[in-house]
Every structure is written in structure tokens, then in C-alpha cells.
């Protein structure tokens, strides 16, 4: 069983559209949506939920007002400025460290576990999908990512599936680090904009930092061919393979409107290049 995760650094380069197409092209796989705070893959894969689990994680401090003597120690010591002048904890700012709970001289503070989201195991016509929804303004996205990946691994083992294909989050922080630890390959989907290129370098840096192999696909290749050449040059210097050059085409959005992976909607160059991308991934993993 091999695991590939699709990242981009910059958001909106086309990760999810491409992952949905990989779902259609790959045989014997489980899909995972690791973008737990803006999960969109389900919109294209149209899952039927089979399991719905609560994700309890992270504690928040709660001050019992009748016990509180307003001595102010918690407010003084909290480094996250989570306690206001009326001694009410702002759950958005509270990082759940429990410092206040430990030092309150009258034991007026309790730590309560918070429901931070939900995760699902679903069936799609492309195979099983493990996905999640992190609650609004919640922390611990990294933990939820680790959890959905673990679940997908189990499904792949039990069902004897060959691949785990993950739609990753944007950025380079906590959920990204959690989604790449120990994977067999990271596929980075980038775009030839200066922002896309800047972010590509940073996300490649993270992959190198954690020693995971990378291949790159350039999406909307032709919106700036000079930039695309620069990406090729850069990847070449880093010994990173460019697996596909996908042109800009409205069929991608049209497919999205129809709720279909683009490879099922059109047989044009976009579909061909995504097929080439999948062959490169499969070859790398074989």
C-alpha cells in the first residue's frame, strides 16, 4: 500500500479538482481529504456517509463565576490574553494550556473537553473516502488530519487496497506537516504565478525538511509560460520531476459546475495531462 498526498502551498491552484480526477483514474484506492477546515473533495466525489464520528480534542478553560474572587492571577499569567476583564474566557483565544486551572487559588477554573469537529467514513463510486469537518475556529487540525489518515490506512489494509490518495491542505503549517509525515510521495500542484512559485519553494522546503519525496505538476501552465519555464528550471535544479503541464481551460470549471471530475467531463488536453500525472505518480510508487 502506497500513500500520496497532493499539496500546493498556495491555495486555489487546483488540488481538489486534480485529486477528484485521480480518484477516477486510479484503481484500488482509498481517498482522504486532509484539508479539514475547508474540505471540498466531497462535493465532487458525492459520498454516502457510512460512519459519522465526533472529534473531541483540546480543552478550554471555564471560570465558575460564583467561585471566582477576581484576584486577577489567571489574567496576569495567561500568555494568550484569553481572559477578559470580566473574567470570562474567550474560547477562540484559549489554547487549552491549563496554566490558569493550575494556579487559580480558589479552584474556580475547570478545563472542559471541546467537540472540535466530526469525521466520516463514506462510500463513493470511486471507493471509500475518509473526510472530516473541523469545527469553526478550532485548533488541532493536525490531530484531525493524523486521525483521518490513520483511518484510511486501516481501510486500505483491511480491504487490501493499493493506494491512499490524499487531498492536502494549503500552507506549510500544522495540518500540512501532519499530512506529509511518512507518506511515500508528495505531489505538488502549482501555478505559474509569482505567488504560486514563491509558495512552491516554501512547500518544497517543508517536504525536504521532513525528507519526503516530491514530484510537481504545473496547472494553468500557459497563463504565463515564462514563469512555467522558471518553475521547470527550479525543479530541475532541485532534481524534482515535472510530471505534467496542464493548460488553462474553462472545462475545469465547467466540470465543477456539473459536479464531475474533469477527466470524466472532457477528453481534451487537460484530461490527457492529468492522466499523465497519474501515470507518473503510479510509476513513482511502483
Amino acid at each position: 500500500m502506497k500513500e500520496v498526498v497532493v499539496l500546493s502551498g498556495k491555495g486555489g491552484t487546483g488540488k481538489t479538482s486534480i485529486v477528484a480526477s485521480l480518484a477516477s483514474l486510479a484503481k484500488s484506492k482509498v481517498m482522504v481529504d486532509c484539508d479539514v477546515d475547508a474540505a471540498d473533495l466531497y462535493l465532487l466525489l458525492k459520498p454516502v456517509a457510512q460512519e459519522n464520528h465526533e472529534f473531541w480534542s483540546g480543552q478550554k478553560a471555564v471560570i465558575t463565576q460564583d467561585r471566582c474572587t477576581e484576584c486577577g492571577l489567571c489574567r496576569e499569567l495567561c500568555r494568550f490574553e484569553a481572559i477578559n476583564d470580566r473574567f470570562v474566557v474567550d474560547p477562540v483565544s484559549c489554547e487549552g494550556c491549563g496554566f490558569c486551572y493550575n494556579i487559580c487559588p480558589v479552584d474556580a477554573i475547570t478545563m472542559s473537553e471541546s467537540l472540535s469537529g466530526h469525521w466520516f467514513v463514506s462510500q463513493t463510486r470511486y471507493g471509500p473516502l475518509v473526510h472530516a469537518r473541523l469545527g469553526i475556529a478550532q485548533e488541532n487540525s493536525g490531530k484531525l488530519v493524523a486521525l483521518v489518515r490513520q483511518e484510511a490506512k486501516q481501510i486500505a489494509e483491511v480491504q487490501g487496497l493499493s493506494y491512499i490518495i490524499s487531498d492536502g491542505p494549503p500552507g506549510i503549517g500544522c495540518p500540512v506537516i501532519s499530512s506529509i509525515s511518512g507518506v511515500d510521495l508528495v505531489l505538488i500542484v502549482t501555478e505559474p504565478t509569482l505567488s504560486g512559485m514563491h509558495d512552491l519553494e516554501r512547500v518544497i522546503g517543508v517536504c525536504h525538511h521532513f525528507a519526503v519525496p516530491v514530484i510537481v505538476g504545473i496547472n494553468k501552465y500557459d497563463i504565463n509560460e515564462d514563469n512555467s519555464h522558471q518553475i521547470e528550471h527550479y525543479c530541475h535544479s532541485q532534481k524534482i520531476e515535472i510530471a505534467a503541464r496542464i493548460p488553462f481551460d474553462n472545462v475545469v470549471t465547467e466540470a465543477l459546475v456539473q459536479g464531475l471530475p474533469v477527466v470524466e467531463y472532457s477528453q481534451n488536453t487537460v484530461a490527457h495531462e492529468i492522466a499523465r500525472l497519474w501515470r507518473a505518480v503510479a510509476e513513482y510508487l511502483s
Binding site: D37, D40, Q138, E139, P175, G259
Partner: peptide, 25 residues
């Protein structure tokens, strides 16, 4: 991007939030 802790950290205590979106699902 997103809706988790880095985003709320950035958006909280602002007077107005402009949400930029695209007309797709």
C-alpha cells in the same frame, strides 16, 4: 485561507471582514 485557528487569529478584533469567493460549489 481556511477557518481554523490561524484564520481566527488574523480576523478577530477587526472591524469588518471582506470575504473573497468564487462562484463555484
Amino acid at each position: 485561507p481556511g477557518t481554523s485557528c490561524p484564520v481566527t487569529e488574523a480576523v478577530k478584533d477587526t472591524d469588518f471582514c471582506v470575504l473573497v469567493t468564487e462562484p463555484t460549489s
